[in-house]
Design a protein around this nucleic acid. Structure first.
Lengths: 107, 107
DNA sequence: TCTTTATTTGGCTTTTTGGCAAAATAACAA
DNA sequence: TTGTTATTTTGCCAAAAAGCCAAATAAAGA
């Protein structure tokens, strides 16, 4: 523990919180293959465009993505490093757990 | 993206969401040095014991910690692997960002 | 058994999210 | 300038989360 400033803790929590929504996880996964504009993400996810926009601003506020405007489009890209490993690791963990649950049900 | 089952995504989001609260982050940080009972955590954090207990159950539900009862105490310990690296990486990132913001203010 | 200690659960209030729809902005083209 | 497309912002409402208190549970000891 030692010294854990509130600010630091709050910012770190913000990162996790931002990743803690299925839609935003899809976004992050999608951005791993490169930047996307809002319309591409909304096509992928299907929610109302304003909802998509709000989710993106949460990711931006947390410093997980950055935006660049080109023409009429806003292009979002991943900026948080060290994300990939943790994403795939948690995904693998969850996959394993769900598989175990399936096994349980078979008995 | 490819096939991303809703269940998998929801579980993964649950992990992040559970980590997305300052108090729960303190808990996880504290548990990195080994199991702790509820009372130790409450002493560390200071909130009402029922609040502590509820936060712990969120972490448990997400599969981040496990519990073992010994005597009248409940001992919580970390079970989610691959957490340490991401925790220290995000902490470092945040630390760097906050430092940059300080620099900005100096100007 | 009665008491104490540790922890969880239930109830309640306040705050925060999530999501849609409508209005506002911004850039570009006609 | 006017219209069009892309995106954000605002307002509103329902649902979920957070936090506190009080009550319930469970193990251990007197």
């Amino acid at each position: 523990m030692l010294i854990y400033s509130k600010a630091l803790l709050a910012e770190q929590a913000k990162i996790f919180k931002a990743l803690g929504h299925p839609t935003r996880l899809i976004m992050v996964h999608a951005l791993q293959s490169g930047e996307k504009c809002v319309c591409e993400l909304q096509e992928l996810i299907g929610d109302d465009i304003s909802t998509i926009s709000k989710h993106l601003s949460v990711l931006k506020e947390a410093g997980i993505v950055s935006v660049e405007k080109r023409g009429t489009n806003m292009y979002y890209s991943l900026v948080l490093c060290c994300l990939e490993t943790f994403l795939s690791c948690t995904a693998e963990t969850v996959r394993r757990r769900l598989a175990e649950q399936m096994e349980e049900l078979k008995k």
